[in-house]
Design a binder for these strands. Structure first.
Lengths: 137, 137
DNA sequence: CGGCATCCGCTACGATACTG
DNA sequence: CAGTATCGTAGCGGATGCCG
């Protein structure tokens, strides 16, 4: 039975372990982009009521209309968000997490909790590292 | 007491909730890039022995020397990886997770487990979405 | 109101060649 | 063996303007 790390099978070779190439990487790349986690976070604030496009936009400072549209479209494509379009005047569009989208909240929270508890130390390390680099140059 | 979601404080306003702007995003951006999680995964395979540059490289198919160097340097900058340089001939350089780096393994695993269990459904949704889009065009 | 089209700069990433 | 330097490319993401 092959070893597995972070959901990825590992092949043992004489020269050491080798990770198998990675389809799940395409999921991480999506979720790791600039806005996706923020949009999911906003949608998780009202688990039972859909949110309007404008409310999402106001809730995420500095996101452009274009990037919010693209991010929502990608989440919809992944089956994590459902989109409801109402042909009124002016039109109303609402978004909500699907069951699959909701299923990711708990695992995601485990990870973001770690980030919340650690990011200040990380930023401190960065400043220290950059300062040391300055001195060497 | 303000609400909090995914480690981010939420401000309630008359027009809806607003996420506070996000320093932790810089951590997610780093971890979400193309190679970081893979490198951390490789290093976590031998929690108690450092790994050589070449072993890491062989373990991650398709990573270029340049990107492995950059990824390791960024992880070192974040205090997640320690680098040990030995001035031999030929030189030997070894890397290992720091305590901070190890502290992220469990929360990360919670998240990557979800990805492992879900990514096939997600890819199926993508294919379906793209096919439906084709039909509309 | 929501969203698409267009233009454009920036940076992540890759390929290659060269040093200690 | 490990790392740096250089160059080229692709795509993310921002700004703006127009349409239902």
């Amino acid at each position: 039975m092959p070893r597995e790390i972070n959901g990825r099978p590992v092949i043992e070779t004489p020269r050491g372990p080798v990770l198998t190439p990675c389809a799940p990487g395409s999921v991480l790349a999506r979720l790791g982009d600039k806005w996706t986690i923020l949009v999911v976070s906003m949608l998780s604030l009202s688990p039972d009521a859909p949110m309007r496009f404008g409310a999402l936009r106001r809730g995420i400072p500095d996101i452009s209309q274009r990037m919010l549209t693209l991010t929502l479209r990608n989440l919809e494509r992944d089956g994590l968000v459902a989109r409801h379009y109402y042909t009124e005047l002016p039109p109303r569009v609402e978004y909500e997490l699907t069951d699959r989208g909701k299923s990711m909240l708990k695992p995601l929270a485990a990870f973001t909790d770690w980030i919340r508890d650690t990011w200040q130390d990380i930023e401190a390390s960065r400043r220290e590292f950059d300062a040391a680099e300055q001195r060497r140059i």
